[in-house]
Nucleic acid binder design. Structure first.
Ligand SMILES: [Zn+2]
Ligand SMILES: [Zn+2]
Ligand SMILES: [Zn+2]
Ligand SMILES: [Zn+2]
Lengths: 159, 159
DNA sequence: CAATTAATTGATAAAAACTCTCACATTATA
DNA sequence: TATAATGTGAGAGTTTTTATCAATTAATTG
């Protein structure tokens, strides 16, 4: 935790940004909820618990800054808000998500399964991949059997 | 074109919805721009050319309706607006997109390359896939060589 | 250290995209 | 035709995000 904070501090100062108290509070909230996919509002409320004086705009600015530096990732699961999650230090690419259309759970595939497909994309389309997003929408193991007509669930979903 | 309209009319009436003149005008705009990825505003402006009396709310309602019936798909490419495209009649799943971070072009992989990966997801995660979204972000063949530091482009992108 | 400059913040206004409301119009049903 | 149901347009309202700006804090200069 402390090392992560220190590491991020260095990433920031490497780009001439300071790890202000507000930014550090935001970073800590993100680290403490690393497995979740928090919205800006979520982060704001959590940060406020510890630093009640922080402003919403600062949270948005911090998330944007961290995103610009590729320290965190912006996600969109089609529910109208941008969500944020830490980018794994070692991971070259973004991990994959499994979104349950019944309960809303977001599970993760942390391995990158797209290697062979990316090869095909690069050769067949002459497209230089920098990152990817892969999301599966369906029924999670928890909800299995609770859904009569799964096909009906997909309509109107985004992303 | 006319067959597609007729087919959609049947899909609507199958769910007790009417293909009103406003809905038909919206459907025709979508069909005439099938290769694009139009936003609601885009659709609205295009429909207005032919049916100036149409309201923005009606366009939103029609897109939502078509989306509910899985006649069109909602997309999010991270630019803040929902985009819409026809769902290929035969395609079981959504096709893949290649988004150029330099010029913004959106190309498509119309074949479904995810078969083997979906098998793994279903068995390893006990997750019943209904649909998927796969997007590659990078540099398209047109922009190759025009970008000095491609990694820099990814920061702050969503989806 | 004092003065100046730059970076950052909080509050709030504003923008953007989308949704809701409701009176009116159109269509279906009896 | 009467009656009910469905659909529409205009605009108000909501939600999320961004822009503005005066005030605070930090860095730099002399
Ligand atoms: Zn579930
Ligand atoms: Zn994730
Ligand atoms: Zn390009
Ligand atoms: Zn497409």
């Amino acid at each position: 935790m402390e090392e992560r904070v220190k590491q991020i501090k260095q990433q920031l100062s490497g780009h001439s940004y300071k790890l202000t108290p507000q930014r550090e509070a935001t970073v800590r909230v993100l680290l403490e909820n690393e497995q979740d996919h928090l919205s800006a509002e979520d982060v704001y409320l959590l940060v406020k618990d510890k630093s009640p004086e922080i402003g919403l705009a600062t949270v948005y600015r911090t998330l944007e800054l961290l995103s610009d530096l590729s320290i965190i990732h912006k996600l969109n699961f089609g529910d109208g808000v941008t969500r944020y999650e830490f980018r794994a230090e070692d991971a070259e690419h973004h991990h994959h998500h499994l979104i349950c259309l019944h309960c809303g759970a977001v599970d993760e595939i942390t391995d990158d399964w797209l290697g062979p497909i990316e090869k095909r994309v690069e050769t067949e389309f002459d497209f230089q991949i920098i990152d990817h997003r892969l999301t599966f929408h369906g029924i999670c193991y928890r909800c299995k059997g609770q859904v009569k007509d799964p096909k009906k669930l997909i309509g109107s979903k985004v992303t």
